[in-house]
Design a protein around this nucleic acid. Structure first.
Length: 429
DNA sequence: TCTGGGGTCCTAGGACCC
DNA sequence: TCTGGGGTCCTAGGACCC
C-alpha cells in the first residue's frame, strides 16, 4: 500500500512575519507581492475580514487599513530561510521528501511502517514544527499525491480529520465517497479555472464526479494530464515523488517597475540588473545557456497610455554562463526592443536552451583557454559576492539599483534570520 | 498614481525527411 | 480518372501549479 503525506504551512508568509513581531499578534496581516502590488498571503484574521487572495493593494488599501490590516512587503530572504528549516524538520520524519513549493512538501511513506497510525504521526509532525519554529502546518495523508493534497485541503478547511490532520486510507470507502461529493471540482489539484468550467458544463461538479468520470473520455476531451488526476482520485498512484529537483530548463528574472520608465538608459539599467541575477541563478545550478530573451512592455491595465510589448531572442553564440557575455548581450538587446514615447511598466530577461556546464557542446572555434579563464573568473566573483553581499563585485554595466525602475517595498521587515545586522533583539522588561 | 513572479507540461500544427 | 505512409523536430499557445 502506498502512502503519501502533504505538509503545508498555514498562511506561510503572514505567519513568518508574525513570528518575529509580537505587535502583529491578533492583528490581520497581509503580505504583498513584489512592488507592493497584490495580496499574496493573508493571516487568519485577514481572511476573516474577507480580503481576497490576489487583490490589488491600491484598490483595497483604504478600506483594509480602516479595518486595522497591516500590510508588509514580501521578504523572500526570511521566507526562504524558514522554509528550509521546515524542510529540515520534515526530513527527520520521512524516508523520502519532495519539496514541492516554498510552503509545501510531499513525504512518501510507501512500504514504510509508521509504527503508529498516521493521525498520531501527523500530530507529531505538527507538534515538532510548532515547538521548534513556531509555525503551524496541516498534514494530509492519502494513497496518491492527489489524494494527499485533497486530505490536506480537508484538514485546512476542517472538512474532515481533526486538529489539522486528515487521513484518507482507502480510496473506495463510503466515507471518502461522501467527502468527495462535498468538494467542488475546482479544488482538486490539477483542475484550474478553465478546466473546472468545462467540466461543470458536462455535469462534473464535485471531486466525486471527476473520480467517477471515464478516464478514456477525459483523455480524449481534455488531456492525459487530467486523466492522471482522475486515476489518482480513484486511488491509482500515477505521480511519483520527485526527490531531486531537476535543473531548471528556463531561468527568468522579470520585474514590474516601481514607477513608469521612459528613457532607454533606465530600461537598460533594469535589464542589465535582471540579466545579472539570471546569470547568477544559472551558475548556481552549474549550467550554461545558449539563448537570452529580453522583453519590455507597457502596463496592460492602462486605457490611456498606448500599449506596446517588445521582445528579442538573442543567441549567445555558444553556451555560456559568463556574466560579461550575458549582461552585455542583454544590454545591447535593449536597443532592439526600445521604442521611444512609451511608458514602460515591466521588463525581464529569460535564459533558455540550458544544459549542464559539462555537457555544453563546443565548436571548432571555441577558445578553450579563454573559456577556462572565464569559468575561474566567475567562480571568484561568485565567491566574493557570497561573502561580501550580492553586487559587491559586478559588471560595470550593472549599476547600483536606483532609478524609476527600482521596485517599491514600502514596508519590508528585517532579514531576521539571515543577516547579522538585522537579528531580532530580545530585551527583558 | 498604484494591478507579482517563476516555473512545467502537453498538444496541435507546420515544415521537413525518406 | 487515378495522388502513400510513416516519421521527427520545432514552435506557439494553452493549461496548470505555487
Amino acid at each position: 500500500m502506498r502512502l503519501f503525506a502533504l505538509v503545508d504551512c498555514n498562511n506561510f508568509y503572514a505567519s513568518c512575519e508574525k513570528l518575529f513581531d509580537p505587535r502583529l499578534a491578533g492583528v490581520p496581516v497581509v503580505v504583498l507581492s513584489n512592488n507592493d502590488g497584490c495580496v499574496v498571503a493573508r493571516s487568519a484574521e485577514a481572511k476573516e475580514l474577507g480580503i481576497a487572495m490576489g487583490a490589488p493593494w491600491f484598490k483595497i488599501r483604504a478600506e483594509a487599513e480602516r479595518a486595522g490590516v497591516r500590510a508588509l512587503s514580501s521578504n523572500y530572504a526570511l521566507y526562504a530561510d524558514l522554509s528550509n528549516r521546515v524542510v529540515e524538520i520534515l526530513r527527520g520524519f520521512a524516508p523520502g521528501i519532495e519539496v514541492y513549493s516554498i510552503d509545501e512538501s510531499f513525504l512518501d511513506f510507501s512500504g514504510f511502517d509508521l509504527l503508529t497510525d498516521p493521525e498520531t504521526f501527523g500530530a507529531a509532525v505538527r507538534r515538532r514544527v510548532a515547538e521548534w519554529l513556531g509555525l503551524a502546518v496541516c498534514v494530509g495523508f492519502g494513497p496518491t499525491k492527489t489524494l494527499a493534497k485533497l486530505a490536506n485541503f480537508c484538514a485546512k478547511k476542517g472538512l474532515a480529520g481533526t486538529d489539522g490532520v486528515c487521513v484518507i486510507r482507502r480510496p473506495d470507502s463510503p466515507e471518502l465517497d461522501e467527502l468527495l461529493g462535498r468538494i467542488p471540482v475546482e479544488e482538486v489539484w490539477g483542475v484550474g479555472r478553465r478546466i473546472a468550467h468545462r467540466l461543470t458544463q458536462k455535469g462534473i461538479r464535485s471531486a466525486r464526479d471527476l473520480r467517477n468520470a471515464d478516464p478514456a473520455m477525459i483523455r480524449s476531451r481534455f488531456s492525459v494530464v487530467l486523466e492522471r488526476t482522475v486515476r489518482e482520485l480513484a486511488g491509482t498512484s500515477c505521480l511519483a515523488l520527485e526527490e531531486v529537483l531537476p535543473d531548471k530548463r528556463q531561468i527568468a528574472v522579470t520585474r514590474s517597475f516601481g514607477s513608469r520608465v521612459h528613457k532607454i538608459g533606465d530600461l537598460t539599467d533594469a535589464i542589465a540588473h535582471h540579466a545579472s541575477r539570471a546569470a547568477g541563478k544559472l551558475r548556481a545550478q552549474n549550467s550554461v545557456a545558449a539563448l537570452i530573451t529580453v522583453f519590455a512592455r507597457t502596463s496592460p491595465f492602462s486605457d490611456k497610455d498606448p500599449w506596446y510589448s517588445g521582445s528579442l531572442a538573442l543567441p549567445l553564440g555558444e553556451h555560456s554562463s559568463d556574466e560579461r557575455r550575458i549582461v552585455g548581450l542583454a544590454a545591447r538587446g535593449v536597443r532592439g526592443i526600445y521604442r521611444p514615447g512609451f511608458a514602460y511598466a515591466k521588463a525581464g530577461v529569460v535564459l533558455s536552451e540550458i544544459v549542464p556546464a559539462d555537457k555544453a557542446p563546443g565548436d571548432l572555434f571555441t577558445d578553450d583557454e579563454a573559456r577556462e579563464r572565464a569559468v575561474r573568473l566567475m567562480s571568484a566573483m561568485d565567491a566574493i559576492n557570497a561573502r561580501f553581499g550580492r553586487g559587491a563585485l559586478r559588471s560595470a554595466a550593472v549599476r547600483a539599483a536606483s532609478g524609476p525602475w527600482v521596485m517599491n517595498q514600502g514596508s519590508l521587515s528585517p532579514a531576521y534570520t539571515t543577516s547579522w545586522e538585522e537579528l531580532p533583539i530580545a530585551r527583558a522588561l
